[in-house]
Design a protein around this nucleic acid. Structure first.
Lengths: 241, 241
DNA sequence: CGCCTAGTTGAGGTAAGTCAATTCACGTGG
DNA sequence: CCACGTGAATTGACTTACCTCAACTAGGCG
């Protein structure tokens, strides 16, 4: 099924009825493709649509006046792109596909329409947005209070946990199309320092990032080192009957 | 009116009908008071209620294993406390009143009930949550890519803008009960360095933080220095008729 | 073949941290 | 009333984690 990722995601929060599933189905009909590196949503632009990522990776980021960039989050299949931009009318950030991506489009009007038909869908989307926020919060803690190595370790673990939830990763590792520049911009580090830190973690025998693949060598030790607690990612069952 | 702060906040997003207002009114009946410094929500605890802050300041934060703390956000009158904890079932953070505070309690069941009665309320809460997320995102950019002085300047400006929206601040300044330790924990700096940076900004004639009061001396210059763009705080009118 | 992007490593600089001492405002109890 | 303790702010001396600049390697591709 085309939208299975989203259905699975929202279904973790509310048990969706057949009617709700069909409303959800109508939400995103139009399929689109974007190529790597070319912005899909641009900071400051008004937005009428959000997207659901079907395949590939994207990242949302902000650019400062001095040209520096902070990547706020990476999106993997099943994630919303630009949901907040849609709700706030204006995009406060940009979104760039890291790889070529496939998405399905969700129009603002359709989303509001869906809310009107079933409040449970609204609650589910609210829940999904809360989970996104929890990830940004954890990212903030990362950047604010962990040193470079812990930050990197924590970040790689978090990505792994998220990918595992959609079947794209395991405790052994995962495929990861990010460059060291991406990592630097996400973690508030220079690309040079990212390289050094990766070496350090590799030589400590904990994790290897190389050739588009992350390999966890000693998952538990790494998790302990990074103070990684995946509670905020937990899929606790539906709270709405 | 008791809940005017929340009504004003949500009303900025959707035009609320009389019926919706009364549902909103029922949402938070029970009034409670908490004293400064004593946690109100504790990391890892299951949560059945959220709160709406009526008076005073609070902060949400996370503690790391090494004892360091990262303050994620400060809450001022009209803000939700622990909405995310409620939606995710478990609190992924703690909340501490910075001053003595007054809140009204919102029970999980009442909130879901309210969504069932009017989807527009659900959309409004979703919008409010998105706005919170936008603030966390900006905070992340602060910590990730600005140096200490810019970070401090940006942060003080953001707080000022938020307080102005609820009538507690202006371009001249605002009352601020935070200590330098709070600022340090929020900005990912040591308290010592916070002190130095505040002196620097004061001596540059831009802003003074002293005796519980923030005074902007040259608002525009400060905003320029901090690359402050309040777009993400904008109260763009109701998107739902 | 030459260019471009990603990655790697070294040398040296700097922003911010740590440790420590001092002041000040404040309660609180003898 | 003063002695004392406590928490916040302030400042100095020293350390360090991370940055910047720079040089170099290796793969991909017109």
């Amino acid at each position: 099924m085309e939208n299975s990722a989203l259905v699975r995601k929202l279904g973790a929060f509310v048990a969706l009825s057949g009617a709700e599933l069909s409303v959800l189905e109508m939400l995103h009909k139009r399929r689109r493709v974007f190529v790597a590196g070319r912005d899909l949503v641009h900071q400051g632009q008004p937005e009428h649509a959000a997207y659901i990522l079907a395949s590939g990776w994207a990242c949302s980021y902000k650019i400062l006046q001095n040209g520096q960039r902070q990547i706020v989050d990476f999106q993997i299949p099943g994630d919303f792109l630009g949901l907040r931009s849609l709700l706030l009318h204006v995009s406060d950030h940009s979104i760039e596909p890291v790889t070529d991506i496939e998405v399905t489009e969700v129009l603002s009007s359709d989303l509001l329409d869906a809310f009107a038909r079933t409040h449970r869908l609204g609650a589910a989307v609210l829940w999904a947005a809360s989970r996104d926020e929890a990830m940004v919060v954890e990212h903030l803690v990362d950047v604010g209070r962990r040193n470079a190595a812990e930050r990197m370790a924590h970040f790689l673990l978090e990505l792994g946990a998220r990918l595992s939830l959609v079947g794209l990763g395991s405790r052994a590792g995962y495929a990861c199309p990010l460059t060291q520049y991406h990592l630097g911009d996400a973690l508030g580090l220079s690309a040079v320092h990212v390289n050094r830190v990766l070496r350090q973690l590799r030589e400590a025998g904990m994790v290897t990032f190389r050739d588009g693949h992350v390999a966890f060598h000693t998952y538990d030790r790494l998790a302990d080192y990074a103070d990684f607690d995946p509670t905020y990612l937990d899929q606790v069952g539906p709270i709405l009957g």
